[in-house]
Simulated assay, not measured.
Amino acid sequence: MTKKVINQKGKFDEELINTIEPNFVFKDKPINRFNIIENSNDSNQTNKAELLEELKKQINSIENCNLKDNSQNLVLGDGNINSSIMLIGEAPGIEEDKSGTTFKGEVGDLLNKMLLAIKIKKQNIYCSYAINFRPPEDRKPTTQEIKRYSVFLREHISIINPKIIILMGSSAMEAVTGINSKISSERGKWKETILKNKTYPVMISFNPSYLIRFPENKKYSWEDLKKIKQKIDEMKIII
């Protein structure tokens, strides 16, 4: 059995970001979106859609942001907003920036193959990014950028309320867990992150764009995918 690690660093990061980015703090008393009556899927979906639209407006209201100023589109997320699986990548690339949707082109093709290998269709899960705008020249987001957008990402996760979170890439790992070590030493281990007093199982793995550049690491991603599939089966999640 893999020992679960409860990472509390996210709370300290949120306190830090609150001190340097006060304009982007959400209200202390958020809408209670967890006490939802069973068999109310339609109202639940509508509620989530409205909350996501409001979140998008919040992100678009950012000022003095180099990422936003140099991007064509904000990429929030897409897929099934009621899915039990939320997959978070690092940041949009050129194809995603043009389309305003997640994981396009060669990167998207590889992700689709990876998910289909464990019998998951991308459209049946929910996909997003740690950073919602494309970094110039597709560079790695800075720690300050990750912290700035992690406020929105945490709210994003709370809205989707998945049962499992998949983090692909070091920026996604840092944004959600606060871990900024090498992803090679953290991937493949089930961890837990706590957001708004709710615990989420988290699996860290390589980003598809990284695997395109370093295909020799696909074997490690395959091991991660098998663990994800095992967890889905254990939790009796239907996708």
Rank of each mutant, 00 (worst) to 15 (best):
E14R: 10
E21Y: 07
A117M: 13
I237S: 12
I6W: 13
N217C: 03
I62Q: 01
K231I: 10
K98C: 00
I88E: 01
E53T: 07
N73L: 02
Y149V: 10
R154K: 13
D97F: 00
K48C: 00
I238K: 12
N124W: 05
K104N: 05
K48M: 09
L110N: 08
E174Q: 15
Y129P: 15
K98G: 01
Y149P: 11
T19M: 10
Q45K: 15
W222M: 10
D42F: 14
L211M: 10
Y126K: 11
N32L: 08
S181K: 11
P92M: 05
S221K: 15
S84D: 10
I36L: 06
K218M: 07
G79A: 02
R148H: 09
I179Q: 02
L153E: 06
S171R: 09
K236L: 05
N124R: 14
I120R: 08
I85M: 03
I228H: 04
E223L: 14
E95S: 03
K231V: 04
G178D: 00
N47H: 08
D42A: 10
D138M: 04
G105R: 06
E155N: 15
P22E: 11
F24M: 07
E53S: 15
I88K: 08
Q45I: 09
I228R: 14
S43A: 04
K27Q: 08
I239Y: 02
D233R: 09
K29V: 11
E90D: 12
N60H: 04
H156E: 06
L195P: 14
P201Q: 03
E145T: 15
E54Y: 04
G105L: 00
N80C: 09
M86R: 03
K3C: 11
